[in-house]
Write a protein that binds this DNA or RNA. Structure first.
Length: 433
RNA sequence: GGCGCUAUCGUCUAGUGGCCUAGGACGCAUCCCUCUCACGGAUGAAACACGGGUUCGAUUCCCGUUAGCGCUACCA
């Protein structure tokens, strides 16, 4: 039998990293099993559902590369199905009316159990479960009811969802029973936690995929990171491509414990992907980022931008971080770090050295890293100072920061005119007289 | 409160009774590379919540305690 799973977001907010991980697990399972991954929109909350959220959710899924099979189903378009099923339950005496609402009767003292693929046997007593609203007074089905009808109608074989749904499961099982339909296999995956170990939410920081995308995380890194939250391929593997994830994915290897969302590790992973990404992939993303900031002009040579990217990609976590570090290259503003200025520029003798450095660079014929380095080292020798005494102040003068790539390469991409004027400007305005 | 789920380094995890003096990764520390930072390389500190069982032997199985989280809506 072919496996069928679904991802069923409700368009009442943007795509949360927890939901994205649920979608990813469903998708990986479907692709691994060569089954189907369906998309269902649970838009029965008329006041909270918004088209812009739907658009954002679909966009985020596509960004991650989680393509779905077939047409998207909308619960709001299946209203007659739900009411028909509820009416049937009504005539069979398994449900009753309360005003316009239809309520499902729960017989107390019954034990409901199911075999969860990650938790094993789970049991509930119906004593703990109240009668369940199936259809609300406004004619809309409730979550638990619509979910059962749809999963059953669309022959979903595995329901893979967050642990927070575990106590919904007996309620749904009771409905399956009343409907005389076979329930799917349930797979409850552990929640993604914030730094205080409670369920990840807005107060922990960015929670929507959209935000991570905007910060300049790569979708491959995000997928890899999310896949390893609550699942592991076994062994020591950490960096896996989408193909490898599909190949390795196995529901049996899903863990039982909640996983903290560790931004530090995500940053490391994104750096790894950034570092290994091809220019073909990176350049369009960088260009997009620069445009957003109005740092992009037609005068920028793609080859030059590529040089800058090469120079910085191993030392940035995100594209946003890339912009922070390269602001001095793309704009005329130098983001001076006060500590760097204090440490490297506000020191005796620095002004004179920077001026001499600038003068020598002025008469330099070629403008490449090797020539600049040769000039720098020969000046240092004449001045009888270490090259570092020239390098460090110059880096702060030109980039505003004490840290960054090789100075000679930075100066090479900065351009001759700009380098010299910045060196002189720093010597005159920032150094002690 | 009731019900449910969970419990290995700070974090993500490997581990399914002896291979564990518990492995990897992030982070941290030190060192190498070096003009700084990052990358890369090397080394180090760092965990089986607690108490009972079961067993020749428990991180691994069972029970309890504790703690954390989740659910307890005519939200999904």
């Amino acid at each position: 039998m072919s496996m069928r799973v679904r991802f069923a977001p409700s368009p009442t907010g943007t795509l949360h990293v927890g939901s994205a991980r649920t979608a990813l697990f469903n998708w990986l399972f479907a692709r691994h099993e060569k089954g189907q991954f369906l998309l269902r929109i649970e838009d029965t909350d008329q006041t909270r559902s918004k088209p812009e959220f739907l658009k954002e959710i679909l966009g985020s899924l596509q960004w991650l590369g989680l393509n779905w099979d077939g047409e998207i189903e909308y619960q709001s378009r299946r209203l007659p199905h739900y009411t028909a099923v509820a009416d049937k339950l009504l005539t069979e005496g398994l449900a009753y009316k309360d005003g316009q609402a239809i309520i499902f009767k729960v017989t107390p003292g019954q034990v409901v159990s199911f075999e969860d693929l990650v938790h094993g046997q789970v049991q509930f007593n119906t004593l703990e479960i109240k009668d369940q609203v199936l259809v609300k007074s406004d004619g809309m089905p409730t979550y638990n009811f619509a979910c059962v009808v749809d999963d059953s109608d669309f022959q979903i074989t595995h329901v893979i969802r967050g642990d927070d749904h575990i106590s919904n499961t007996p309620k749904q099982l009771l409905i399956y029973q009343a409907l005389k339909r076979n329930p799917p296999i349930f797979v409850h995956i552990p929640l993604i936690l914030g730094t205080d170990r409670s369920r990840l939410s807005k107060r922990h920081g960015a929670t929507s995929l959209q935000e991570y995308r905007q910060m300049g995380y790569l979708p491959e890194a995000m997928v890899n990171f999310l896949a390893l939250l609550g699942w592991s391929p076994g062994g020591d593997r950490e960096l896996l491509t989408l193909e490898e994830l599909i190949h390795e994915f196995d529901l049996k290897r899903i863990g039982k414990t909640g996983a903290m969302f560790d931004l530090t590790k995500l940053n490391w992973m994104n750096n790894q992907y950034l570092k290994n990404a091809s220019l073909e992939e990176l350049l369009p993303l960088v260009e997009e980022k620069l445009s957003e900031k109005d740092w992009w002009t037609d005068k920028l040579e793609p080859a030059w931008v590529a040089e800058v990217v090469e120079l910085y990609k191993s030392r940035v976590d995100t594209l946003e971080d890339f912009c922070r570090q390269t602001q001095g290259l793309f704009t005329d503003e130098i983001p001076f770090d006060p500590e760097a200025v204090e440490l490297r520029l506000k020191q005796p003798g620095v002004a004179g050295r920077l001026k001499i450095f600038a003068e020598h660079l002025q008469i330099l014929q070629a403008w490449d890293a090797a020539s600049i380095e040769a000039a720098c080292r020969s000046i240092a020798e004449q001045l009888k100072v270490k090259a570092a005494e020239l390098i460090h102040p110059a880096r702060v003068a030109v980039t505003g920061r004490a840290v960054g790539p090789s100075l000679f390469h930075v100066l090479a991409v900065s351009g001759k005119e700009r380098t010299i004027s910045r060196l002189l400007h720093a010597a005159e305005t920032l150094c002690p007289s």
